[in-house]
Each structure stands twice: as C-alpha cells, then as structure tokens.
Design a protein around this nucleic acid. Sequence first.
RNA 1: CGGGGCGUAGCGCAGACUGGUUAGCGCACCUGCCUUGGGAGCAGGGGGUCGGAGGUUCAAAUCCUCUCGCCCCGACCA
Length: 581
Amino acid sequence: MRYSTYFIHTLFETPKEAETPSHIFLLRGCYIYPVAAGVYSLLPLGHRVAEKIKNIIRDELNAIAGLEITMPVLNPAELWKKTKRYFDIGQELIRFKDRKDREFVLAMTNEETVTDIAKHFLRSYRDLPVMLYHIQTKIRDEARPRGGLLRIREFFMKDAYSFHRDFEDLDAYYPRIFNAYLRIFARCGLNSIPIEADSGIMGGTGSHEFMLESPNGEDRFVVCTHCDYRANTEKAEGVKSTRDESIEAPPPREKIATPGVKTIADLVQCFGAGEADFLKTVAYDADGELVLAVIRGDYAISTAKLTNHLKAVHLDLASEELLAARGLHAGFLSPVGIKGTRMVMDTSIGKRDLFVAGANEIDMHYKNVLFGRDFEIDEKADIAEVREGDACLKCQQGSLRIGRGIELGHTFKLGTKYTAPDSMDVTYLDPAGEQKRVIMGCYGIGVERLMASVIERWHDDSGMIFPITIAPFQVAIVAIGKNPAVVDAAEKLYEQLSSRYEVLYDDRDESAGVKLKDADLLGFPIRVVISQKLLKENNVEMKIRKTGEVIICAQHALEATVEQIAEKLQPTLEGLPYMAE
RNA sequence: CGGGGCGUAGCGCAGACUGGUUAGCGCACCUGCCUUGGGAGCAGGGGGUCGGAGGUUCAAAUCCUCUCGCCCCGACCA
C-alpha cells in the first residue's frame, strides 16, 4: 500500500478529550474517529487491526469446534421478556417500538437468540455438545463511556455459547475455551491474567475474567503473593480476624449521648478508639425490601457480594422514607432491638467482640454491645470488600495485593439460567429417551477494547508498538529524499516485500523527520529505510519498533532478514497458565 | 445519577474579567520555489452561524438566563 493513496491523516497535537495512551495514539494515528460519546468509526488502519483480531479469535475458536454464525442486533422484546432480562436490565438496554408498535430491543448479547436457535434445533443427545459463536455489533447505553475504545456504547463483541448434555460435559469443555482465551490474548501480544469472577448462582470455578493489568483499567482484582489465587474484588475473600476478646464478665450495655456523631470517622474521633471497635450498620433497599447490613467498622460493605447474597436484582442505599417508615435514622442504626427486618451480618463480627453501635435513636449510641447478648442475627455471610494486605483465604500464607486491570474477556458456566422452564425451557432426549435439560456456557471478548488494551500495554512516547500479529502493516518502507536512485530502489523493495508481507510504502513528498515520526506513531513492527547514503553501499536499514534495534543489511539480503525478524517477533504460546483439559 | 472541567477553523490555543475596527496565532490543508536521517525554509492562498436559543444594550465571542454537546472522578455495569 502506498501512503500517498491510503487514508492516514496523523495529528501532531493531542486532541484534548484524550487522556489515556491508547485513546491519544488511536486518534493521533488516524485509527479511529469519534461520532458521539462512546461511539467511534474505525478508519482504515483501525479497521485492519480489528479484522486481524477477529481472525485470531476465529482461528482459535474454530480450532475447538466452534461454529461461526450471525445473529441480529434487532431483537423482539418478547424474547427478552421470556428470560426476564427485559425487566432485570436497566437503561443500558435500548428499547423501542417499530412502526407497527411492536416492542424491540437492541441486543447487548445474544443469549436469547442463540437459546431460541438451540431450542428449535437441538432435540437429541446426539446434537450435543455444540458451540456457536458470532462476532457482532453490541449496543449498550453505558452510563459512562470512557478511555476512548476502552468502554464504548457500540462495539464488536465475540460472544460464544456452548450447549451440553450435563454439567460434567460443560466442565469438560470449559478448559478448552479457557485455554483458547489464553492463546487469543497471547497471540495479540498480551499476557492475560485469568481471575475467578463473580459467578452469581453458579459459584465455584464457574466463571473467569481475563484481565490485563493496567493503571487505566476500571476493574480491581486481588492476587495472592504466595499461591495462584487470583479473583475479582467483587468475589475475593480475605481472612478476617475476629478479635474474640477473652472477657470473663462482659460489661453491660450502656447508652451514650453522641450528638451529631454519625460516621465511623466521627465515632473514631469521638471515642478515641479504632475503626474495628465500632459496629457499622447500613440500610439497603433490596428490590423494595429494607435490609440492614451489619459489619465491623474497619470493613466496607461490598454491594456486589451483598446483592449476590440477597439474590437481589436491584440494590440501593435505603431512602430516608423507607427508614422513617420503621422509625430508623441513618447515622444511628444498629441491629440492637430490631425486629421484623431482614439483617445480614458479615463474618468479621466475632461472638466475643465488644462494640460501640448505634442506638436506633437520634444522637444516641450504645457502648459494650455484644453479639448474642445484645442482638441476634441468623444470616451470616461474607459481605466485606477485600482489603489490600488481607491474608489469603486459600493458602493462609500469602497476602492479597489489589491490582487494577482491564477486563479483556469473560468465560461463564451459565448452567440452566436460559434453558430453565421459567426461562426459555430447552430440553433434549437422552439415550434412554428421557427428557433432560440443556446446560449452557457463554464466553465473550470485546474486539475494540482488546485493540485499545494492546496499545495500553505496548506504546512509548513516540506512539504505538503493534505486535506483528495484529499490526495494520507488518513493514513500513521509508524513502528519504527524492533522488531518483533512492525512489527507484524503494519501489523495488516495495514490490519485492509486498509479495510476502503487508507493506506500507511512504512515498510522500515529506521531510525525513515527518516520515520517520509517522512510522513510529503508527506502530509498524518493522521499518525499512532507504537513503542515498545507504544506497551507495548497496545497503538498507531495518529498525525493529519494539526493541529499537537497528540492522543494516545488504539490499539482496533484505527479504531473508525481514523474514528472520518477523519470525522472532511472533508471540510465544508456551508457558501460559493453561487449565488441564 | 452526583461532583469537576471544557465548547472560538480539521487539531492545539489567545481574545472574555473591563462589550466597541474586518475575531487572531501555531500546526494541518492548497499553489509555487527550495529542501530531505527525526514533526525543514521562503512567498502567496482557502477555510469561522465564536456549540445552540432567548435576553440586556446603540453595539455581544465577551454580560444574564436556559439548553445541548464533550472529557475526567465516583456510583452503576448482562
């Protein structure tokens, strides 16, 4: 491809809306163009990268018997009502009516349509297992798009769905998709970290997120310093030390006036004690029901864990009205004396810990509150946010470090969420002629986010550094000067290399500086330079973008050298944290 | 949805506080000359409803009200 006839308009200055490296360079390099908040066009360079990523995904999924299909974005609302997602999902799901007043939604994933296909066609155990996937536009009205391509409202997602005879078969299949994911990210040049993810009802090893550790990521996960425990903070659990003070004769509960003292920080100041000496009670509105969550003062409540524990669809802080209806007051809440209200207690509270707690009366607290004596709660669960430095629950030896990362992909053992009788009701006949329920898994990867993540990982001050597997062009040729001999030689090299590689030949009448800077910005893995000086010795120069290494070689040896370098730049698939198949 | 910031040429900015010629600068773009190893030089040129609406005024990019858009932090995120 000749630069002069291609579509590249690089920017010297950074558009002010861009802050993260991938966003800055994608805009400056003319890979993308914004259309609206969180909506982008992919320009020729960006399009090429996206297509290459898609092809890697296809390659790996086809290798594990995945079958590519295409399902529509436009879905009848009826289908989404069957699975109840129509009601469970908030405003991210775009709903509208067609000209005949029929309700539609814009699919944000395709569980409904794919399960409908499964229900229609899969009848016998002989039809299972099967994995169907597609790479299709997804539309989500995100509350806050951010970071350029990192979180957008319309994007390509590869979503795959597998159907199985039973859980054993799903368990047997799962490592194949897990390992394919590791290979996909590795082939894109990324070292992904699989972490245990919040899997709602499934539990166990039912769900993994594949993270790229990055300061610009919006997810948090824990990593054990000692063992291989890695988990999303929404699920991660650390060891909690209950104090269990050995009090022979616990002092009696005592009421104390605490005017205006509402938060744990206020209490710490007022009582001159540590955060762990207080009982924190937070009131939630769980699908309309008032729930009190009780935790030790030095922990924060994880709304994700609490939501899962309660199996709630929507969880919000309780409104003043909801509290007032029970005669309760935020800031002075406690489980002491509460009856007829659902309460959940975190495992951080020990049987023998003395606490300061609210008195459920404005401006009043209790001292010396003891679980089992001053209040009772049957429902005990881990609802605490894990903390940096907490001991690892799995190995009991390491401590937990909290990392920030970008979620590249998600694998999920769905089970019967969509095939259940109260959902889409999908069954098959087993060899004995018995009707059995189909078991499902689903697996997703966001294409644009993956592209942006690669740049987050691979860039320097000058620009992007694409892995050779997904670079829009593997080789850039820069001719310096207009000397006919140089131009002639460059044309020849271009022709020669084009037969085996994707080459961008910078044939513009631009100064050397401009061309070299552009080649750096755009991130081509191998740069070939031809100039008068080099030509005199019958040489050409090659520079490896990733390492900065410069190689001068004889013109006739160019092709062989490029091949050598290209080979060296291939990512390795050895040593990934594969799951045993 | 809460908090903060910004809207003037394709991009980056000045002008606004203190209203007043024809709204300016750099980059990019077009023409010509010249130049070619790290974002050259000279000369000429095109491009603006100052985000939008309403108001104040003899006069509004500038002051007031409303509104729309974009970015960042947080909440939220099948």
